[in-house]
Design a protein around this nucleic acid. Structure first.
Lengths: 219, 219
DNA sequence: CAATCATTCAAGCGATTGATTGAAGCATCG
DNA sequence: CGATGCTTCAATCAATCGCTTGAATGATTG
């Protein structure tokens, strides 16, 4: 009896224990999207992505609904984001290999200088910062932090004029392991801007129950 | 690069996705013990338990140290308990099969009537409750809630005289899925005692950083 | 220093999982 | 109402995982 429960919980946990599925989950947590777009974002074949998404759904991490000919997947519950974030934190803390890669490719300093969510809230209330969302337009449209300016990373150098030179900028993207905001910080600093990263990203903001804006109709 | 990190995190998560390993982890979180005793507690062969424990160690969930000829395993970090508890909550919330088994075998009512940790702390401060630890003596000796009385479930009926008839009793054991305290409540109620369960157990109390007592020397 | 004991390693087997391909559902749109 | 397009199912093969068995390691004990 107890063994059955443990085995079932094991099934649920195992559904998370796969690189492709963790990546799909990261993309799903940006907002509701079709199988095809998720497959594209994660670099998987549509059939393969579909299978992975079905497993995530069976394990209760995402849910789906039919919209015309497309099936739209979205996060089952905001608490999933926190659960997954906890697992990433644990893995980064205990796995030397992950720490090494993270330290290498993301840069130790940028991590330490990141702005926490609570600090950002305080600074936003003071009106002291400009928020910069460096994700693609479609993810921005699905939802973003209130008042954020959206400039895709590859357009950043062309649109520097839109950014304030005399205010601090806080850049964010998909989450703590998303490289977009790291690169945005590097680019902007080299141009003389005052800029820091948000330590996590949009999904964590959403999961914390904080207000968001969206260009499309509410979910 | 990112794929490597995701794959490694997947490895870590997969280390948790196994019934036997979840059971071993539950026993480890009661306190430090040798491979042999853990194998016995989980009903596994020693070699098999050793392999599972090595995987849990590689994934950073437990740690080991040599003590004479025995290797003692203990939880790597109290936060592991919370992480695992979060996964169990998610699984119970989303998996109909688990909900059914839990509702069946543990009893819906007892779950609702369980005492939360914060409520228990309040009642302990009032001096209004007697704590009853129904785990085996060896687990009790490794650590227990302050002032708790230890009476193993199978001795409960023989030692009723040690329990107060006019005060509320709160029984606890290994955690929210441990049957011992459910059965203790059933036995004691049938004898006319006022008794409720703690909603979780000793490991969660420990992970919350609350004070404990132990018969052996501190870890 | 050799014997002993708990644990870990190594190899092998059966069972399960992941990715690929092609075909089948299913809801819309003309 | 049949055609279209997105998604899921089914079948396949390679790869991995879990458990068992038997030997090796490492630290103690006489």
């Amino acid at each position: 009896m107890k063994k059955i429960v443990l085995e079932r919980v094991g099934d649920v946990v195992r559904a998370l224990g796969s690189g492709p599925r963790l990546e799909l989950l990261e993309h799903v947590s940006q907002g509701e999207r079709s199988v095809e777009r998720l497959a594209d974002a994660a670099g998987l074949s549509v059939a393969n992505a579909s299978q992975h998404l079905l497993k995530l759904r069976a394990a209760g991490f995402v849910r789906s609904r039919r919209d015309g000919k497309a099936v739209m997947y979205s996060l089952a519950d905001p608490s999933v984001t926190e659960l997954v974030a906890g697992l990433f934190r644990h893995a980064e803390r205990t796995q030397a290999e992950i720490r090494a890669i993270v330290a290498d490719s993301f840069g130790r300093l940028d991590r330490l200088e990141a702005v926490s969510r609570s600090e950002l809230i305080g600074r936003l209330e003071e009106g002291a910062v400009t928020l910069l969302d460096v994700r693609p337009e479609d993810e921005f449209a699905l939802g973003h932090l209130p008042g954020a300016l959206n400039v895709r990373l590859d357009q950043l150098e062309a649109r520097l004029a839109e950014l304030p030179a005399d205010r601090e900028i806080v850049a964010y993207c998909r989450g703590p392991y998303c490289v977009l905001s790291f690169e945005a910080v590097a680019v902007l600093r080299s141009k003389g801007f005052t800029v820091r990263r948000l330590e996590d990203g949009y999904p964590e903001w959403l999961a914390a129950g904080l207000p968001t804006e969206s260009a499309e109709r509410a979910l």
